[in-house]
Structures are given as C-alpha cells and as structure tokens.
Write a protein that binds this DNA or RNA. Structure first.
Lengths: 342, 342
DNA sequence: TTATTCGTCGAAAACGTTTTCGGTAAAATC
DNA sequence: GATTTTACCGAAAACGTTTTCGACGAATAA
C-alpha cells in the first residue's frame, strides 16, 4: 500500500494539503507557480485520490447501477454494451445485477444499490414486477432512475423504449399485405408492458384490416418467452389449427423454437406457415430459413438510457429542475426468408 | 437524504455512537439489553451504514472488478452469470468493464479498478495482450487477480480454465475414430493461449494417429473468430481442398459460418464434410444440422473464478499466506448431427 | 500617509464510520 | 473492609478528502 496521499505531496513541497487539493480542483486562489509544482509532483509521485474519501466527502460515487432480468440474452447484452460504452465516455463505473425475473430479488437489489449510494439506476423490470414502490423509493431518495425496455408507464421517471405496439402492428400489417390470412400470435406473459403492447399491436392490425380477432390463435409463452416455449406451443398450434398460415412471435427465441418444430415435422416455411420474429437477434440470420424480424436497437437503447441518466445526475447535483423524458427509438422490419413466399 | 446515521440512533437511545457501533459489530463489551435496544432502533429508524464511510475506515469496498473482451457473446455472458451469482451469495458487488480486445484499454481499466479500490479483479485477457505488467502491478498492490478463460501462464496468480488442448485433442480424435481422413482446422488468432492450445491439440491428435500434419489445412480466423471468419474461410477451403471431409473449428461461431456456407453451396453435412465446433453455444442446437461441439462450462468458470477470488481476498485480509491454484474444468463432447454419418 | 483591494495561502471542520484505550461501578475475591 | 476482577460504556483518534473562513503581505487607491 504505497499509495501517496495529498499530505505526502504537501510535505514534499513544503505546503499545506489545502493548497494541494485546491491546485488540483482548479481553485483560483493558488498561484500558477505552485499549481505547476503540485501537478509535477502529482505525476512524479503517481498520486491517485482515494475514492472512498472523496465519496464520503462529496457524497457521490461516480457509479451507476444496472438491473436486468438476465444477462445471457443477446438483447440485454447489447443493451449492456451500450450502457458500458456511454458510462466509459462519461467516466462512470457500472455495477450490474440480475433480477432473474424475480420481483423480490429486484426489490432487494434496488435497496442494495441505494445503500451502496450509486448515483443513479438503470433498470429493465422483471416480468413479475407489478408493484413499483421500490422504484419510487429510489426516486424519492433523490437517486434518478431511468427505465428501459420493460418499463412501467406509471412511474414518474425517464424511459427509453421502442414502440412495441407500433412495431408489432407493422409486422402483422406486413404479413397481411403479403397475403397471409390466418395469423397466430405467440405472446409473452401478461405483466410486462412490451409483451402487452406487442399483443395489442397484433390485435389492432387485424382489426384495422377487417380480420376478426380469434383468441384461440393466441398462445401464451410465459415460461421465459424462450426457445422451449415456441417449440411446445408450435406443437399445439399445428394440432389446433390446420389452416394457420403465419405466426407472429413475441421474440426471436420463440420464433426459432417454432421454426425448429416446423422443420422437424417437415412443414415448409414460409410456404405452409410463415414465421415472424422480434428483436433481430444475431442467430436469426443463421437458421434456415432466415428469420424475418423486427430490428430492436439494443445498443442504442442502452447508450441513450445511460446518457439520460447521467445527465439527470448532473442536473440534480446542480440543483436544477430535471424534466423526465420518454424516448422512443425507431424499429424497422428486416425481411428474410421466413416470410418470403416465392 | 433522510439517511439515519449512527449518531441519530445513539442520541435517540441516549448512548454513545461507540456503543451503537459495537453493538452492531458484535463486540462483547456491550450488554445484551442495550444491544437489543440498538437492534430495535436500527430497524425502526431503518439505519443503513454509509458504505463510503465504512470503506474509508476499513479500506475495503466489498466490490470486485471484471474485465472481459466483449459482453455480447454467449460464452462471456454465461461466465458473467456465474460471477454475478457467486458474488451475490458472498455479498460482493461487481463492476464490469469491456476491453474490446484492446490491450491499451485493458491496461487503463486495470488502473481504473485499482484506483476505485476494488477488493479483487477477474480478467479474461484481450487477444492483443502479450505484456502482463499491468496485471502484475495489481498483484503487487495486494489486489488479488484471478485469470479465467484467456489466461497467461506466466502470471503468478490463480487461474480457471478448461484444458483447451485436451478438449481439442479429444474432438479431433473423435473425428478420426469416426473415420474422417482429412481434417481441416479453422484456428483463432496467434496470441490467445486457448487458440494456441486448441491448435496444438488438433496437431497432436493427428500425429498420435499417424496422420501427417498439413499446414495448408489450417485456416486463420483472426478477425474476431466469428461467423464471417468461418464463412469466408469455408469458401477458401472448398476451393483449395476438394477432398477435405471434416473441419474442426475453434469456435461455434466459426463453425456456424462454415455450415452456412456449405449449406448455401449445397455441400451435405456431414456426408461430404463434417463440422465440429467449440463451446456448445445455445444456437448450436438450433441450426441445421445441429452442431457437434465441445461443452465449455461458462457458468462454472465464472462461478469458480469468483469463488477463488473472494477466498483470496479474505485470506489477504487475515494476513494469511495465499496459495494460488489453477483449476481445470472438465469438458466433454456433445455429439450432434454435424458429425453423425448414418 | 492611510485605507482598501488583491493574490495567495493554511487552519480547521466536516463527511460517518471503526477501534483503541481508559474509566467507572458493581460484583467477586481475599 | 480492602482489593481485584468483571461488565459495561464513552472519549477520542483515525481514515483522506473538500471547503469555508480568516489571515497576511503586497499592491493599489484614496
């Protein structure tokens, strides 16, 4: 522990810690000559401030906390990538926690982050979460929160999302315009807003094109909205409805599960059944047939969310009024083989 | 900022901060009755210690730093998953940084973590890294380091790896025993140890089975050992060598690139060319044909590495001698369609 | 000349803990 | 009854910064 402290360079220079500190913090009441001497000594003695002491004194940590449902997921790791890049640029560190889609864990982790005195929190809500008091508590404690992806509209804070409803609407409209008549939807669980919105977009698109909405065509993928869900429900679908000609899935993973099952029982995609995914996960370009999907800009979501959060942290520090914003990032359809009838 | 402090519950109880602190830290020189009163007041006033003050006083942060080359990668996100779980169990927080495979960035990030006074560092080296002085500096500063996955044998610290050489040897031996005669290898770049080891395992397996090693059958995937690398080199391969009947790829991503190209030009897998991957990435079960690969236990690697690191942190704190260990996690072959000739 | 401003510096308090050390009263020992 | 032990408590220093406030000499203004 050969860490040099303020007092070490002060004694080396025969001046006080006060002056050294001021020289480093840009105070005007220190002469240019002594400031130069301090700066020189700082580099030669390799001085690094003790962040714990700084944190205690200034009551900020230059650290933000991130809570995501799961790390092992292309979308969320892309978001994290964006967050980490923005944080690095703005000189913030990021602490990452996984809620594993559990409300209780998420709540505990918010408390943990507050106790660790992070300067702000980024969070994508767990599927279980339908009570938001833990979020509000953070806000009440003057720790800004930015919600992304899986948000709660009721919470009074900034949010970064895509317009799931519009994206889903566009997807289903695309299918209808391609001539698909009987379109099933594999939806996510009931609580997360994006799952609800995608379902509503699906429904609205049908209605706007005079196709009656048939609830029996909607399959619930509430396990984890993953591969297995798609695979299992695809089995049910082909049993229940012989005449379905397209499926809009809540997620690429679900879509891939569907494709896998349809491939196995030799149902041709898209000739017999078309499949439309959501997220533009990397592997959607690799399976056969390649998956038509919605591009969900994970990196941008993370980067924007982190940027907004850090801005709000600065505003709070300056005692400026902070106005919350909701950013909607654009999505677009990526057309590939799984919906392209020749 | 209604945070209650030690002094608040002390005055509320009419005792000193010293006694309150001692009551909470389990000192014996405080009566059970006052301890009970303190505990009660702590919960009723919702006291949480100010970590910055604690950190300053105790000179530890209960935080570990993690540096990985990239986040958006199934293997690394699995590792992180293991790290986060272990850290959560042991009540450590984790700060994550991405080196983007850049040595300079990695070096800067090590310095940053040291300045932030993390209690320990987990790192998987970037491909560029061939100088290890930044790692040694951390160790010299009494901050334990555990290397995982992409390690440097020369550095004197604990390591968690798989035996890449043996795993590759097993893979190629498997191919040979299945009757494949001319086996190509798509290798990773020259610096990372695991890339070298997989290549050496490939070569050794050939030699041990009396198959002459042919350097022209080895293709370098040094872009990022990713999808594009496999795809591009697969083109070269089928041009150069008409009679190759199997490829052992350094990574599932590369293997998937190969499969994609072979599928496109209608070369049958495995009938004409078999493909063997490495990592058991999730998507290897989803493409067709399903990919035979090596199971690389990412979660376990992360969990074990974090566990060892936290143990070493504890040992250093107790001034016990710490003995470094190198853990080799077992791998095994996952046989799927891409090598299974009927 | 005296009064005021300016430029430069340092003492000291504060942030909220933890821990050492000594002190006092009651209980136990002689 | 005198001494020692035990049980319990608190004063104070320390961790390394940041920031307020006042001080002092020199330069300027009156």
């Amino acid at each position: 522990m050969n860490d040099t402290r303020l007092i070490d360079i002060a004694t080396a220079l025969g001046i006080s810690v006060t002056t050294v500190s001021k020289a480093l913090k840009g105070y005007t009441d220190v002469s240019e000559t002594t400031r130069a001497k301090v700066l020189e000594m700082v580099t030669s003695m390799n001085y690094k401030p003790n962040v714990n002491a700084v944190n205690l004194r200034t009551n900020e940590t230059k650290t933000i906390g991130v809570i995501i449902p799961t790390m092992v997921h292309h979308f969320f790791s892309s978001v994290l990538n964006g967050i980490l890049d923005e944080a690095e640029n703005r000189e913030y560190l990021v602490i990452i926690l996984q809620s594993n889609e559990k409300y209780e864990l998420e709540k505990k982790q918010i408390a943990l982050l507050l106790q660790k005195r992070v300067d702000g929190i980024l969070i994508s809500l767990s599927n279980e979460t339908d009570d938001f008091s833990h979020i509000n508590e953070a806000i009440k404690k003057n720790t800004p929160v930015v919600l992304f992806d899986k948000i709660a509209k009721l919470v009074n804070c900034s949010k970064v999302v895509i317009n799931d409803r519009k994206a889903a609407y566009d997807a289903v409209t695309y299918l209808i315009e391609k001539g698909y008549k009987k379109i099933a939807h594999f939806r996510g669980s009931y609580t997360p807003q994006n799952s609800i919105d995608r379902f509503l977009g699906y429904k609205k698109a049908l209605e706007d094109h005079n196709i009656p909405y048939d609830p029996s065509l909607v399959y619930l993928c509430d396990h984890n909205a993953d591969f297995e869900d798609g695979y299992a429900n695809a089995q049910k679908l082909v049993n229940d409805h012989k005449d379905v000609d397209a499926v809009f899935a809540v997620t690429d993973l679900v879509a891939i599960g569907i494709i896998k099952y349809l491939n196995e029982i030799q149902i041709k995609i898209p000739e017999q059944i078309a499949v439309f995914g959501f997220s533009n996960w990397f592997m959607s370009t690799v399976i056969s047939p390649k998956l038509t999907t919605i591009d969900q800009p994970g990196y941008d979501i993370g980067q924007r969310a982190a940027s907004i959060l850090i801005n709000e942290i600065a505003q709070i520090k300056e005692h400026l009024p902070v106005t919350h914003q909701t950013i909607e990032l654009p999505t677009h359809i990526i057309e590939r083989e799984s919906t392209l009838r020749s």
